[in-house]
């Protein structure tokens, strides 16, 4: 295993450094928390889009499902922090199992259309069952329970710093897990499916099985992100299951860079920060998002992270050239 693929190698260190630096460099800790939560959702989306080649407009279903389910079990059944998060993971995974099992029966544009129709159905279902979801008003007064392990309360998580540390720990665990997944034989098979589904199936992989597992993992992580978002806001809005949420998660993934997990932090960071900093100055900042989306697809297929990588490699090649020429002149 070389340095770049080992679990605690290069990229993981950069990710950990970002997690530590973000709350120091950014104007507020809450902003950093929001970035990490959406980075989780983008990372999960990346597993589907970047590694398996599946463009899903259904990520909002899992995000909203996680937010609603965690909120409901905390409000009505007095679930604690960990058990509420596990509920969200399970609900996200089950929703992804249902959506995935149906959607992967079609490919290409019809696959996209299926995820789109499920996304719309989820929204109208959430709107209809307003007794459970709060409808347009959303679910209010969602608690943020204390972090308790084996009966010992570690932190009440009420301060935004404490909650950030908790979210950062969750993110780090998921990040390491996701890297483990994509560098496993399972992950390389996903990439093979993305590159050439026909050939992967011809050499004997049951591609639908792999796609479905990718869906379930993605749904579980997205559900977890949704639950954390509800705890951050103390609120689970209907907009979580809107098509716009799915679009936003997709855009973060693409702008950050498809096919690189760390890109998801950059994508989520760029968009959450733009939303936070620009929306007060210039409410129409989404225009930039549209232009950025087009630019990334046409000119920067690796997204922000891909851009950074190629920039650094260009810089280092310039350095190498300089060294060479200086040696020659000697």
């Amino acid at each position: 295993m070389n340095k770049s693929t080992s679990i605690f190698g290069g990229v993981t260190i950069i990710a950990l450094a970002l997690i530590v630096l973000m709350p120091i460099l950014l104007p507020s800790v809450t902003l950093a928390t929001e970035i990490l939560i959406f980075a989780l959702a983008a990372l999960a989306c990346n597993l589907l889009l970047g590694y398996t080649g599946l463009l899903s407009f259904g990520q909002g279903i899992f995000f909203g499902g996680g937010a609603y389910s965690a909120s409901l079990v905390m409000l009505h059944l007095d679930f604690g922090l960990i058990s509420a998060l596990i509920t969200a993971i399970l609900v996200g995974a089950s929703l992804a199992l249902i959506v995935g099992a149906l959607a992967i029966r079609r490919t290409g544009i019809y696959f996209v259309m299926l995820t789109l129709s499920f996304s719309q159905m989820a929204y109208f279902l959430a709107y209809t069952f307003s007794d459970w979801t709060g409808g347009d008003n959303g679910l209010l007064d969602v608690p943020r329970p204390a972090l308790t392990l084996f009966g010992i309360t570690i932190s009440d998580l009420q301060s935004s710093e404490a909650f950030y540390i908790f979210v950062a720990a969750v993110f780090a665990i998921v990040f390491v897990f996701a890297r483990r997944v994509i560098h496993s034989p399972f992950g390389t098979t996903l990439v093979a499916i993305r590159e050439n589904e026909g050939r992967s199936s011809a050499v004997g992989f049951s591609t639908n099985h792999f796609k479905l597992v990718a869906f379930v993992i993605s749904g579980a992580i997205t559900g977890l992100a949704g639950a954390l978002y509800a705890m951050l806001l103390n609120f689970a809005p209907l907009s979580n299951v809107e098509l716009l949420m799915s679009e936003n998660i997709l855009i973060m993934t693409i702008i950050g860079g498809t096919g690189s997990l760390i890109g998801s932090i950059f994508g989520a960071g760029a968009i959450v920060m733009m939303g936070d900093l620009l929306s007060s100055i210039w409410p129409r900042w989404m225009m930039i998002l549209g232009a950025a989306l087009i630019a990334v697809v046409l000119f920067l297929p690796g997204g922000l992270w891909g851009g950074i990588i190629s920039l650094t490699s260009k810089l280092s090649s310039i350095k190498v050239k300089k060294n060479l020429t200086s040696e020659v002149t000697k």
């Binding site: 889009l49 080649g53 463009l55 290409g108 544009i109 996209v112 679009e247 997709l250 855009i251 693409i254 129409r284 989404m286 225009m287 998002l289 549209g290 232009a291 950025a292 989306l293 087009i294 697809v297 046409l298």
Partner: peptide
């Protein structure tokens, strides 16, 4: 198609915001 969707999604966002 994936790329077509994303590019036109960008166009849609720009038109809406304009």
């Amino acid at each position: 198609h994936t790329y077509q969707i994303l590019v036109t999604l960008g166009v849609a966002l720009i038109i809406q915001e304009v």
